[in-house]
Amino acid sequence: MTDATQPGRVIAAHGRHYRVAIDHTDVLRHCYTRGKKAGPAVGDHVLIRPEGHLEGVITEILPRRNLFYRSDAQRSKLFAANIDQLLLVLAAEPEFSDDLLGRAMVAASSAGIQIRIVLNKADLPSTAAARARLASTEALGVPLTLISALDTAQVHERLEPLLRGRCTLLLGQSGMGKSTLLNALVPEAGAATRAHSEALGTGRHTTTQTRLYTLPGGGDLIDSPGFQAFGLQHLSPDEIEQGFPEFAPAIAQCRFYNCTHQHEPGCGVLAAVARGDISTDRHALYMRILAENKAAQRY
């Protein structure tokens, strides 16, 4: 750091525009980056060079503990950096995607980030069916909390103890009630909410930027736009494997040290799938992600 720069933390991002809270002050600066290199994510600690009145240029991204993001052939979407846990919001209605859930779990596990699931709209009769679909995920050790985001007292009672003193990324498919949940936890956030369209059977995006909020009871909550896709093209084969921690005991039984767990004889993972010790759906997701990333490398 030089005399011309100031340390701060990125608390909001929209495109290539960022809001940075300057350390140990109440100053917020509207900042941007120069060049085409990857930009910062909300939660990043950065150095900025002040410009004009409450503006600045981000000159350096300081070392990260972790980075949670998705990527496809077109671009990468940075969700957040330096987080302690991912709070994935699902709902009884509209129906959530098992594939997107699985991909978020892989991204979190490969980055060493704890994941928790919140099943929203738990007052609906369809909750039992949604809970049954999540039984295999719970069996992997992923904690599940049932709430109704419209019941503010219940939200505070069940979630505040999980969020206190931690930096949490709030993530969910569109239509899961994530903005309603944010409003219950941080009333001043003023997040826009829209009624789910029954005619379309899908939600509408209500968050257009990623933003960090300080929780009244302690801790930080990062809200990000809803998503309908979750590419993982930034992950190497080894990192994809790390995203399936339940494979680890079986991998130790593989005959070949470089086994890809797809077709090799003597593969401990394939044997575990055949015995039912590893879910066929999880192994199928592993195969899909490997195939997608291999195909992407050809272009």
Rank of each mutant, 00 (worst) to 15 (best):
M1R: 12
D3C: 01
T5M: 12
T5K: 04
G8T: 04
R9Q: 13
V10Y: 11
V10P: 10
A13C: 03
Y18M: 08
V20K: 11
A21Y: 01
V27K: 13
Y32N: 12
R34A: 02
K36R: 14
D44L: 05
H45Q: 12
V46N: 13
Y69F: 14
S71W: 03
Q74A: 10
R75V: 09
N82C: 05
Q85Y: 00
L87V: 05
L88S: 06
L90Q: 01
F96P: 00
V106I: 15
A108M: 04
A111W: 03
Q114R: 10
I117N: 09
V118K: 00
A122N: 05
A129E: 15
R133L: 01
R133F: 00
R133V: 08
A135E: 15
A139K: 15
G141C: 11
G141M: 07
A149I: 07
L150S: 02
L150E: 07
D151M: 00
Q154V: 02
V155N: 02
H156P: 04
L162D: 09
G165K: 07
C167M: 11
K178G: 09
T180N: 06
N183L: 06
V186R: 05
A189D: 03
A189Y: 01
A192I: 12
T193R: 15
L200M: 03
T202Q: 15
H205M: 06
T207Y: 06
T207H: 13
Q209H: 11
T210A: 13
T210V: 07
Y213G: 05
P216D: 12
G218Q: 10
G218L: 02
D220A: 10
D220T: 08
L221H: 09
G226I: 09
Q228R: 13
G231Q: 04
L232Y: 00
Q233L: 14
D238V: 13
E239C: 08
E241G: 09
F244A: 08
C259M: 03
C259I: 12
T260L: 07
P265Y: 12
C267H: 08
G268S: 03
V269A: 06
L270H: 14
A271W: 01
A271M: 05
A274F: 11
S279I: 05
T280A: 15
D281M: 10
R282Y: 04
A284R: 10
A284T: 11
Y286K: 04
M287F: 00
K294C: 06
Q297C: 05
